[in-house]
């Protein structure tokens, strides 16, 4: 087996193992937490018999290991259980919301990633001159301001004053793609501002690091212009760290949008999670936790795979 296939196989099996471990942690965590689901469903005035009946019905009394495996095998088959509070099937309730969350994250990424990398390249080209400083200042400022504040500020100016985009990002299946994009324009803008700085600065740092190499001097002495040097010779050697930080930010876009979804009343996973955490609906919290963990692990795995594939020494062994 070639070394690169072996490395990739190792990396992927490590991810699966990690996901399994996290499922244990999520399950154990929700058991250890204090509180009583039955109590929170029935309220303070419930009789002890009613509480006992409900607990038996919910299966809370079974041994934890048995409950874990039942839950795990169910999850592997796409059955995430039923929500305690509403009795709804979780997988069904989640499916449209995951779609919405991914839709928002995808369009935020489509805008933010190329923009961040382009700004990073630009900052390298004009290092320590005004364009570099301006880019750094603006992106750092946007990452430093809390995202809900940016959200409300944009809402006030763009939605309320100028009326370019709606302040509430409602979407549904009957809308066309263009209508949907118009609807989510503001949350996409906010998310872009939030993740831009991190990716832009890593692009800048990774490329500047490569710019110290002797082969950059070779390229300069070939008479290439600054952009050719950066784009052809520096960028290919800086891909691994850049992809890494891009993936972490994409993961953030998927799992970290809770606040934005609440601000813009967007029907995504974040809001669904928040609703059910407050009701102590353990199966929903577990399901959401598992999905978020899977997204994080998958994206980071993808970053590592790109890093392995971008290394010519691994791709083309001696």
């Amino acid at each position: 087996m070639s070394p690169i296939v072996k490395l990739l196989a190792q990396r992927i099996s490590l991810s699966l193992l990690l996901l399994l471990l996290i499922s244990v942690v999520i399950f154990a965590g929700t058991i250890v937490l204090p509180g009583d689901v039955a109590q929170s469903i029935l309220g303070q005035s419930a009789t002890p018999e009613a509480l006992a009946n409900l607990r038996a019905e919910l299966g809370v009394n079974d041994p934890p290991v048995q409950r874990y495996f039942a839950w795990l095998f169910g999850a592997m088959q796409g059955d995430l259980g039923t929500a305690l509070t509403s009795g709804q099937d979780i997988a069904q309730a989640l499916s449209s919301r995951i779609g919405n969350t991914l839709f928002l994250a995808f369009w935020a990424a489509v805008v933010a990633v190329p923009l961040a990398i382009f700004l990073g390249l630009l900052a390298v080209r004009f290092k320590d001159r005004w364009p570099d400083k301006l880019i750094s200042a603006v992106t750092l400022a946007s990452i430093s301001i809390p995202e809900f504040l940016i959200g409300y500020v944009l809402m006030y100016f763009i939605a309320v004053k100028m009326r370019w985009a709606p302040s509430v990002a409602m979407i549904n299946d009957s809308m066309s793609l263009l209508e949907k994009l118009h609807s989510i324009a503001l949350p996409v803008a906010v998310l872009t501002l939030v993740v831009l700085a991190h990716m832009m600065r890593m692009t800048r740092a990774a490329i500047l690091n490569v710019m110290q190499s002797a082969y950059i001097e070779t390229a300069e002495l070939k008479g290439l212009n600054a952009f050719q040097v950066i784009y052809r010779h520096a960028f290919p050697n800086a891909i691994a760290p850049i992809v890494n930080v891009v993936m972490i930010n994409l993961a953030y876009l998927v799992v970290g949008v809770v606040v934005i979804e609440v601000v813009f009343v967007y029907p995504g996973m974040g809001q669904y999670l928040v609703d059910h955490v407050s009701k102590r609906d353990v199966p929903v919290v577990q399901a959401c936790g598992l999905i978020f963990a899977a997204v994080y692990i998958a994206l980071n795995m993808f970053a590592d795979i790109v890093a392995i594939l971008s290394n010519p020494r691994l791709r083309h062994p001696k």
Partner: peptide, 12 residues
């Protein structure tokens, strides 16, 4: 240059 090993871009 003195060090061709460093002066060639490893990715190309």
């Amino acid at each position: 240059s003195q060090s061709a090993a460093a002066s060639f871009n490893p990715a190309k």
